[in-house]
Simulated scan of single mutants.
Amino acid sequence: MIKTIGTAACTAVAVESDPYIPLTISWSSENKRQPLYWRITGKAGGELEIKVDAQSGAIRELVIIEAPPKAIDAGAPDSREAEAGIPVFNRSPWGISTNPDYSEFKAGVVTSTEDLSFSMENGTVKLAFSTKRAVRALVCDNVQIYLAGDGSLSAVIVQSPSAT
């Protein structure tokens, strides 16, 4: 799993859902450069794509292409104070090039396999990335991102998404 290395300010977020794509979360970005792509396959099923800002490493979009299975424990991580912001990822897995401005990456897409689970109940959507305990929570409008102690994603929770 790609680890987070910091946070960025949250300016706006949009949440969408339809019969074909269970969930799309988009965070606004001024950068119009091609994003870096992180494709995640669930060990028990499911497929996600996370778009990462190539310049800053901030998350730009999370798309559930195929819903992972529902976990037996689909409850929220331990409640805690959430800080405003969005995660910034370590971009080294994409292989930063030796260009003087470090503007190009050796790979545009990286892949990983994770313990994904997904539930959508009573206006709350939960996407879990692992069974690691969440120690930090970031919030941007109605989207909460939980991080494990090692900086990896633990869960994403959307409260009352407008399109579900």
Rank of each mutant, 00 (worst) to 15 (best):
I21T: 15
G6A: 10
P35K: 06
V139P: 00
V139R: 14
A84L: 11
E121F: 03
D115A: 15
A155M: 02
I65W: 01
V109A: 02
A8R: 11
K51E: 15
G123V: 06
S119T: 15
M1L: 07
E61S: 14
I25S: 09
G6Y: 09
K70R: 14
I50M: 15
F129I: 04
G95P: 06
Q159N: 13
I40P: 06
K3P: 01
A67G: 10
F89P: 09
V110F: 07
Q159I: 13
V139G: 00
G6E: 08
Y146T: 04
I5D: 10
F118M: 03
A107N: 04
A128D: 14
E47I: 07
R39E: 12
D18I: 03
S79H: 08
D101Y: 12
P87M: 06
N31W: 08
T111R: 14
A134S: 15
P35V: 05
K3L: 12
L62V: 15
F89W: 11
K106S: 08
G149P: 06
D150R: 05
V125M: 11
S160E: 08
V156N: 07
P93V: 12
N99K: 12
S28I: 01
S97R: 03
L127A: 07
A82D: 09
V156Y: 00
L147P: 07
S119R: 11
T124D: 02
G57R: 04
V52S: 09
R133A: 14
P161M: 09
S130D: 08
E66M: 07
T164P: 01
S17P: 00
L153S: 02
G75S: 15
S119F: 03
I40M: 13
A54M: 03
E16A: 15
S17R: 13
S92I: 02
Y37D: 12
G95E: 03
V13K: 02
A9Y: 04
Q159A: 14
W94E: 09
Y102P: 00
T164R: 02
G108P: 07
L62Q: 05
A9L: 09
K106F: 06
I2W: 13
F129V: 04
Y37E: 14
D73C: 01
T41Q: 13
V109F: 05
W38M: 07
A54I: 11
